[in-house]
Structures are given as structure tokens and as C-alpha cells.
Write a protein that binds this DNA or RNA. Structure first.
Lengths: 232, 232
DNA sequence: CGGACTTTTGAAGTAATTCAAGGGGAGTGG
DNA sequence: CCACTCCCCTTGAATTACTTCAAAAGTCCG
């Protein structure tokens, strides 16, 4: 009798988890659906923040861009995660750009709907605090890594983080489950695509990774951990 | 008839703002007071996160330390701000170390007291979401700066951020209102104290800043903005 | 006045970027 | 099915921004 196939997804979502079923129904009724093809932009940095999105399927990438056009990748968003947190936090514009890196399907609701859900269901507000606390903490760690580690370690940490977040076990190792270019990795690790290419190549020679166009497979994750954590 | 001198401070605080007066009284009754001398540690990275603190007077510094001992400065905490956000976000240990950099006076409450306040007063949860959203956003910007800017710009941005957050206008310019070493600035900008020293020296020669032991005054903030934002 | 910490400054070293050029895969359209 | 084109990736060489190393000079405080 699952009249609405999205219900389970929202019920288990990191933000809306814990809302009573009738509340979920109301929320879904007020929500819209959206499909994005790989490469499509969900919203841009500076756009008015009027909607909150919940990714059902696919993969999104959130970036921060400098006035001169240089950008970094803030995070990748996977199924069950939200994009557009700023409408919860009272921001009026999106602080970054979110783009689909795979064909994606998402649910979107208006900002005031999301904020009302927080007012009405304390559990949603608590979820939001937990979620933002986790993201804040992640950023603290990344900032430290970027400040104190050398490039090879940073690339290692970036890959391990991706593997942990969305790695798919295969017979040959852990595969990053979406198209990932050298440039993307560079924007995660704070370096250039050239250095990433060279580093990956060296690792490939040592049998640690296996990579091709827009694709990376970790063959020896433990070796990568050793590299990433290596202080020497 | 201000029987309790801390009341106003808590009432106006970024987290507890909006709680009805009787609720504030209960909160204060359950809270402890603490004094720290410059250099004292409030809590250390890895400590059990069992308390939330509200700074009344003084200045704190939050740092993130790597296993090998290298550290960066996450933020400085000024009067009216909180330290120990992680107890709100459900973390069990503090993700960083907080140290007093000036003689400080603070109010502390137990984690469950703070969490109960969030449950009971939706406005507190909303404040927490806003607060964490702002910090998360700040970190995004810093991460981008650290990734894409060169040292001189980063030092500039670090100083401007400090000036904005806790600069004191004086006749000679904007003074950073607490003891700030070259090493501290280095840990904010992701560089070494040597580079900071050289950079500050060069700026001093150009009349942009005025600095001494543990002290920096911005004489020409606009010139610093130009340097910090300069893409060339 | 001694001692600890902070800051300055030169010189050497280097990790990583920048510059430059070419190769390869995937998709497209004829 | 082949040729064309657009990205993406690789790789060498030159450059450089910044760190590291080393030493000395201030500055504060007891």
C-alpha cells in the first residue's frame, strides 16, 4: 500500500527522519519533483535561497567559486542527503553552486515549508543541528589537512573520503561510483590536475590504484591510508 | 533590580536569545561560572564533550591539531559567543582544543541542559542552526581561500577577518584587540611564522600596518582589502 | 640581570605550479 | 563505419613561491 514511493526515502532522510507519518505526507504533498541530467545546475552561488532539496537518486557536487573564477569542491551529495542547507540557516542566497554529476532525481520543497517543519517538529531542528555540526566538523578537518599536509597526502585523504562516502566494492577494489576527473580531485585536494595526474600515475605503478578516464578504483586502500597518514 | 548580572548577557546571546525570562532564570540557575587566565585550557581535542560554554568576557582560541602535533586556528571566540558547539550537535568528544588568550570569564552548562533547552524552546534550536550554518559557511570560504590564494592574500584575509570580528578603532587605525603572535597568524593563514613576519614587515614599510610584539594595528584597511582581493 | 619567548632576516633548498605539447577515448554526425 | 571534434589525461622542462635552516636581536617579566 505504498501509495507514494518517495515516502520511505523522506522518512529515512537525515533531516526529516523522525517526523510522524502524517506530517511526512503533508510535507510530500507540498514538495515538487525534479530530474537533472549530468551537468545540469541545480542552483548557482548567489542565487536566492528559496528551496531545499533532497537527493533521491544520482549524485551532486557543491562548489565554492572565487570572484576570479577559481573554485573548489565543497562536497559531493549522495542519495538521502540534502542540498541547499542555507534555507534552514536563514541565509538569503546560496553560498555555493550545486551541479549534477550523474543523472539525478530529487525532491524539492520551498524554504518556508522546510523552516516550518523545523518549528513544528523539534526532531527536524535537532537533525539539522546534527547535520550542520557534522559538516562543520568535516570542514575543520579538511582545513587542517590543507594547511599542514603535502599534496600526496591530501589527494590520498580526498580519495579515501570519497571511497568512504560513496565507494562501491568490486572484485578489483573500491570504485568511486561516479565520474571523477583529475580536475575534480584537484579541486578537492587544493592542487592542480597535473599534480593529481602524476600522483595517480605513480600510485598506479605501485598497484595502489587503478584508474582511467573519469574513473578511480582503490586497489589497496590500506596502502593509501598509510600514505595519507604518513607524517614523514 | 538586576539581581543576576549575567541575565542580560545570556538573554542577548547568539544561542539563547529569545528564551522567555523565566526560562533564562532556570538556565542560569543550572549553570556554573568559570574564570580562565590567559593560556589556560578550557577543554582539549578528544575530551568528552559534556559542557557548553558561553563567553562573557575575554577571548578564546579554538584549534585543530593533527596527530603529529601541527595545528591550525579554527576561530577566535569573543564575548557573547559560545564554545563547545559539539554538545549541541550530538558529538561525544570535542573536535578541537579551546584556550584562553586573554583573562576570561565564562558561564558553562551541562550538555543535557543545553540540549533540553533546544527541545523546549524551538527558538534555541533555530539559533543553533543559524549559528552552525554561519560557521559552516565561513569554513567554506576559508577553504577556498586556502586552496586558491597565495600567502600574502591569505594573511590579508586573516587580518581583515580578525579586524571585522574584534577590531578596536583607535586614532591610528584598527587594532586587533588581543595578543596575536606571528605564529598565530600563520596558523590562521596556513603558512609559517617566518613568512608572516616578512609579509608584515613589508606592509609596515608601506605604512599599511603597524605592528609590534603580539600586536597588530591596521593603518590602511582599504589597502589591505586591495591586497587580499587582488587577483594578480 | 637572567632567561624565556617573540621576532627578524639572510641563505639555501624544494615541493609543487606553471608552461608547453602531445596523445587518447568517447561521442557525433556524415 | 569512419572521420572529426571535444574533452580528458599524460609528461617533460622551467620556474617560483614558499619553506626550511640557521642565527641573532628584541622584548618582557620575574
Amino acid at each position: 500500500m505504498d501509495c507514494c514511493p518517495d515516502l520511505d526515502l523522506v522518512a529515512g532522510n537525515e533531516l526529516f527522519r523522525g517526523i510522524p507519518v502524517d506530517g511526512l505526507g503533508a510535507l510530500l504533498a507540498a514538495a515538487g519533483r525534479k530530474r537533472l541530467a549530468s551537468g545540469d545546475v541545480l542552483f548557482r552561488q548567489g542565487d536566492a535561497a528559496d528551496s531545499l532539496f533532497l537527493l533521491i537518486e544520482g549524485r551532486l557536487r557543491a562548489t565554492q567559486t572565487a570572484p576570479d573564477g577559481q573554485q573548489i569542491i565543497i562536497r559531493y551529495v549522495g542519495p538521502g542527503e540534502i542540498a541547499g542547507y542555507t534555507v534552514l540557516a536563514g541565509g538569503d542566497v546560496h553560498p555555493g553552486t550545486v551541479t549534477a554529476v550523474d543523472d539525478s532525481y530529487l525532491i524539492g520543497c520551498r524554504g518556508d515549508t522546510a523552516r516550518r517543519a523545523m518549528e513544528r517538529y523539534p526532531v527536524v531542528a535537532r537533525n539539522a543541528v546534527i547535520l550542520l555540526g557534522r559538516r562543520y566538523h568535516e570542514m575543520q578537518v579538511r582545513l587542517r589537512e590543507l594547511s599542514t599536509e603535502r599534496v600526496e597526502q591530501r589527494i590520498g585523504h580526498a580519495l579515501l573520503r570519497l571511497a568512504h562516502q560513496c565507494g562501491r566494492r568490486t572484485m578489483s577494489g573500491i570504485e568511486i561510483a561516479f565520474p571523477l576527473s583529475r580536475q575534480d580531485l584537484a579541486e578537492m585536494a587544493g592542487t592542480t590536475l597535473h599534480t593529481v595526474s602524476r600522483t595517480l600515475r605513480a600510485w598506479e605503478e605501485r598497484g595502489i590504484v587503478d584508474c582511467g578516464r573519469l574513473r578511480v578504483i582503490l586497489r589497496k586502500p590500506h596502502a593509501l591510508v598509510a600514505i595519507a597518514d604518513d607524517g614523514s
